[in-house]
């Protein structure tokens, strides 16, 4: 019995030593960002209900349909004054249906959705493919990544994202201008099992200059589903 115990202890020690001795496998920044994207939203088609609340208490709700990587339809549900203000994103291109004018007009991704939240904040929830990633800091539990826009027309030119190593959860991000000035500070929190994975259900966007101005995006539900291509159509926005 004693011999068996010693053998087991020795084996455990050897395995542990071997594991420590093995050089840590380097993970590429692109892989990290892909894993982060999988955390932020499902890979396949999905529909989500979100709420955007400003620090002054103003509240809007949206229904967001996403097909593949670059097709998103946003329907404004409340408040009543904005109902019907639907938006469509195809690639880096965006259109909005303006109920007052009863017309669909072309808009830019950087135009504001509500408060501190830009259209691109909810319509484009994937960074891989849009941004070049570089590891800025590799700390014990966190990677700090610098993302630089590969394409024109994206909502932000640069991002600094802090990612938790063992879960690939994005924790916080700074959205920067081309020259490196911080525009917004973003916190990803309230991780819950939703839409087939553990995802942040609250995204707090704070103005970097005016600390008292913020918007909180709350993801109420994510439903994975198959969406018809036909609804991602400028003619179908009304």
């Amino acid at each position: 019995m004693r011999v068996q115990f010693l053998t087991l202890l020795t084996s455990v020690f050897c395995v542990a030593t071997a594991a420590q001795a093995k050089p840590e496998e380097k993970i590429s920044p692109d892989t990290i960002i892909q894993r982060v994207d999988e955390i932020r939203s499902p890979k396949e088609d999905f529909k989500m209900m979100i709420e955007v609340k400003n620090n002054d208490g103003d509240l809007s709700t949206f229904e967001v349909f996403t097909k593949g990587k670059d097709k998103t339809l946003i329907k404004t549900l409340t408040p009543d004054r904005d109902k019907g203000r639907n938006m469509l994103m195809l690639g880096e291109n965006m259109w909005a249906f303006i109920p007052n004018l009863k017309r669909t007009v072309r808009i830019s991704l950087s135009q504001k959705l509500m408060g501190e939240a830009a259209n691109g904040d909810i319509s484009r929830m994937k960074w891989s493919g849009d941004y070049d990633a570089k590891i800025e800091k590799d700390e014990a539990t966190i990677w700090q990544l610098l993302l630089t826009a590969q394409k024109k027309g994206l909502t932000y030119d640069k991002l600094i994202v802090n990612v938790e190593k063992n879960t690939f959860h994005p924790l916080s991000a700074d959205y920067l201008t081309k020259s490196g000035d911080v525009l917004k500070h973003v916190t990803y929190k309230a991780y819950k099992d939703i839409g087939g994975g553990s995802r942040p259900t609250e995204i707090l966007i704070e103005d970097a200059m005016r600390k008292n101005i913020s918007s909180l995006i709350t993801i109420k539900s994510i439903t994975q589903t198959t969406l018809s291509e036909a609804i991602f159509n400028q003619n179908a926005l009304n």
């Binding site: 018809s228 036909a230 003619n235 179908a236």
Partner: peptide, 19 residues
């Protein structure tokens, strides 16, 4: 009626063209 990549609408409606 919405199909996979098309839809058809029959009835009284308004259509807007132009930018």
């Amino acid at each position: 009626k919405t199909l996979e990549s098309s839809r058809i609408i029959i009835g009284l409606q308004k259509i807007t063209w132009g930018e």
